[in-house]
């Protein structure tokens, strides 16, 4: 398994681990509440017993949750660790956010509105904003990272499957915040190389054209 390729699984595992324990505890709490309300209902005419507390019980239900939440913390942490440090050989894409669109720029100067990436290759996105705060969010890959005007954040991911996935802006940025969608398009390596080549040719052609226009 390639380092980082299981990020989605780690997030899902942490989520379901915490949700599972929570659901169980919630069930116990709710069940006890309902059970007590019926069992000790005043209509049954039983006398209430004044129990002032029980220190052993208090310690028990302090210590056990502490252990549980520490486990939850650990699960959350191991899924995050990888996200922080991109591998050395990651392909770098520069992402520029502005109200309300995304621009993706590749090493060779090619720019695109959608993020084209090869499958099974670590991608590092360097995030920069031209105006206000945005947030680069790919729900399918289970991460987001804020895009700030004064600070260059970066994050990386490893697309494991070919396909198209949504990129959303997750930090409120004004009028058309909800329309600030783009796509990450994961292609097989070969197709990606072709795409990049075609785009480069197109770009060079347009550069020559515009310089030709300028000369006139």
């Amino acid at each position: 398994m390639i380092y980082g390729s299981n990020h989605i699984d780690l997030v899902n595992d942490a989520f379901w681990f915490i949700t599972g324990i929570s659901a169980l505890l919630l069930f116990v709490i709710t069940f006890l509440m309902i059970y007590f309300v019926f069992k000790y209902n005043r209509k049954k005419g039983k006398k209430a017993v004044n129990i002032e507390g029980n220190t052993k019980l208090e310690i028990l239900w302090t210590v056990i949750p502490v252990i549980l939440v520490m486990a939850m913390f650990w699960y959350g942490w191991i899924g995050y660790r990888d996200l922080k440090n991109p591998p050395k050989d990651a392909m770098i894409v520069k992402v520029t956010a502005q109200m309300w669109k995304w621009t993706f720029e590749y090493d060779n100067g090619v720019k695109a509105d959608s993020l084209y990436v090869p499958v099974n290759r670590a991608i590092q996105v360097n995030l920069h904003s031209l105006d206000v705060n945005h947030s680069f969010f790919i729900p399918a890959f289970r991460f987001k990272r804020d895009v700030l005007p004064n600070k260059n954040n970066s994050i990386w991911f490893l697309p494991a499957n070919v396909g198209k996935f949504d990129i959303a802006c997750a930090e409120y940025c004004g009028l058309s915040h909800s329309a600030m969608y783009s796509k990450v398009i994961v292609l097989p390596q070969q197709e990606f190389d072709n795409w990049l080549k075609t785009e480069l040719v197109k770009k060079n052609a347009s550069v020559t054209q515009s310089s030709a226009v300028n000369r006139k």
Binding site: A14, I18, T19, A23, T30, M72, G76, F143, A170, E171
Partner: peptide, 23 residues
């Protein structure tokens, strides 16, 4: 409140937070 609290735990986990923050 318990549901609110438990879902707070879900967000407290770093990796999960990266996904559900601001959703």
């Amino acid at each position: 409140f318990s549901i609110g609290g438990f879902t707070g735990l879900i967000q407290g986990a770093l990796s999960v937070n990266m996904h559900i923050h601001d959703t």
